[in-house]
Design a protein around this nucleic acid. Structure first.
Lengths: 346, 346
DNA sequence: TTACAGAATATGAACGTTCAAATAGGGTTG
DNA sequence: CAACCCTATTTGAACGTTCATATTCTGTAA
């Protein structure tokens, strides 16, 4: 059987192709009576408009691009699953599809933008892993390509809310602050922090949160702050050093660090019943071993990213639309408290 | 400046659009001299053919679809990252792009196939998580949609190599067999197995591998086989039961199970220096805690999946092509041996 | 009845490519 | 020199939409 198209459908109904097109794209323009008739025929025939033809005519592909970052650390990277899934689902709901691509570097990513915009007419991009002086955002802004970032624009850190592009982020500092505060309330007076070397936006942010809580409680911080590259062994090492300086509880910038730190702390303070280490990201590992962790509402973030982007893209068409999604959104994380998984008999 | 198109480029060169088109799609048809001239102009202008126009004319989108499975278990799901990444990269190399989609169920996935084929003209699909009586493969075969599966067709288990569709899989049985054999060689005579309830293809396969090694060594298996749903606590429970029946080492069907089992074993046999539990999938967690695990060559699998699919799709055009990729490929896994991460002082 | 306005529908053209068939440019061959 | 064939290139049409404009219809007022 031949494929159903606008023309074939219109012919079989005795109307013009444009009428059918209008039923789909601007229903208000067509008389209710015919509209019904056409809609019924569409449902009947299972007609779906060809994306290619549409794209050729309108220069919009209803496709959004997202780069898959190189797999660095499987532990912290594993929340990418959740992010991607939520992103795809939301996009699907809004009528968009998601196109994946790879790049080795930021400049490689920019080259991909050019390519994908030219050949595939991508409507926009989702950015992840934004950092200081991010060349990608500059390029996209300059070329007026719609995009939304997961992560604040750290370059204009004075006022990320004044940024020219939409972004959604999780308030990591609030997370580590709450983590530290919780430990302090449990009676700890020397809460250490193991974080990444200064210079990464998210890392500095998390460190600052811990510091805020300590300062607010009138506690000293100078000897309790350790900078370490991410990883389990580094976490254990850091914990050992901090413990030797008197720390009895720790906040970590990642679950990797926390995993090592928690094991070390358990070794050093076997009598301690409750968990004294809190990680970040609430990765599956944390759940598995019963590690407390700061959990990012990553599904919410993904949903909002799509919402803003979709609004941005449709924006010109629906000036008086319903509610306008925030262009800049800082979501609060949640502290997931766990007791270390005990392997006692069931 | 106006966009470069076939026509504009051809005009500026004083040739016809079809000549330029031929330089791109069938270079042998055009005289070397003009070919060079055109190629130079293409590079100069940065011209890239519009995917939409191509797709409209040829009904091929150079897009492959892949479903994101619902996030169930973050631990075992975390290798999806690596898979997706390798898949995207390979696809990119072959000139294909990857389109993501979500579905709640297999029937939902089939509905998505219909939709995506109609609207987006996807050229093929990558299937994951194949199982007994998979309705998706049937549908795709029946509708003659090109696809390749990561996972054997368990329905025709008698002879998966006779299957009508391409697939790539990892020989899980060989992995658990090697794992068990290794433990036996280390002196263990009672090696237990904790796996999933019978009925899942991959699960049964892994159990069978362990059994082969035990039987080959003349060891008993009947009391050492436990069926449990996936998860850390289940692993610990299983380990406890098996230990009470005399097991001194364990092979598990997943890292989740192994993680729980390893902790329990460490608790029961604190003197034991070397790891006596081997997991499956070599997830980041395993690496983090120093758990031995059977590692799937998932990047190779992804690459091959794209290779077969791309060959299938181009097949008709290049009958005498270079080397033909195997339509059915069973890759051997590797046993990664680790000693439990010790948190001793550095 | 005619004129006119507004709503509803229809028509021509264009988006950028590839397919199928036509035309032009040499050589060979009889 | 005509008839032919092969290679290189060109031309017309089509893929399925939407945009811009044109046409027809319907009802109301002069």
């Amino acid at each position: 059987m031949p494929k159903t198209t606008l023309v074939s459908l219109a012919a079989s109904l005795g109307v013009s192709r444009q009428t059918v097109s209008n039923v789909i794209n601007a229903p208000h323009r067509v008389k209710p009576e015919t509209r019904m008739r056409v809609q019924h025929a569409i449902a009947e025939s299972g007609y779906r408009p060809s994306a290619a033809a549409r794209q050729l005519r309108t220069r919009r592909s209803m496709n959004l691009g997202i780069r898959l970052m190189p797999v660095v650390d499987g532990i912290n990277g594993s929340i990418l699953d959740r992010f991607l899934h939520a992103l795809t689902e939301s996009a699907q709901d809004e009528g968009y599809r998601l196109t994946l691509f790879c790049a080795e570097s930021d400049s490689g990513e920019i080259r991909q933008y050019e390519e994908l915009l030219k050949v595939a007419d991508l409507d926009g991009f989702v950015l992840t892993g934004t950092h200081y002086g991010d060349a990608r955002t500059e390029w996209l802004l300059e070329h007026e390509v719609p995009f939304a970032a997961f992560g604040r624009p750290w370059s204009s850190v004075e006022d990320p809310f004044g940024s020219g592009h939409p972004w959604v982020d999780v308030d990591g500092g609030a997370g580590t602050e709450q983590a530290a505060r919780t430990l302090i309330e449990q009676g700890h007076t020397a809460v250490g922090f193991i974080g990444w070397p200064a210079g990464s936006g998210a890392g500095d942010d998390r460190r600052a949160g811990w510091k805020r809580a300590m300062v607010a409680a009138g506690l000293a911080t100078d000897t309790l702050d350790i900078q370490a590259d991410d990883g389990v062994p580094a976490g254990a090492q850091g914990a050992e050093r901090l413990a030797s300086r008197g720390a009895t509880a720790l906040v970590c910038a990642s679950d990797s660090l926390a995993l090592g730190a928690a094991a070390k702390m358990r070794q050093l303070f076997p009598e301690q019943a409750s968990g004294t280490v809190i990680g970040f990201d609430d990765t599956p590992v944390a759940a598995a071993v019963g590690l407390s962790s700061v959990s990012q509402p990553i599904e919410d973030a993904a949903r909002h990213i799509i919402a803003v982007l979709a609004h941005e893209l449709a924006g010109t068409n629906f000036p008086g639309g319903e509610e306008v999604p925030e262009r800049h959104l800082l979501l609060p994380p949640t502290l997931i408290q766990r007791t270390p998984y005990s392997f006692s008999s069931s």
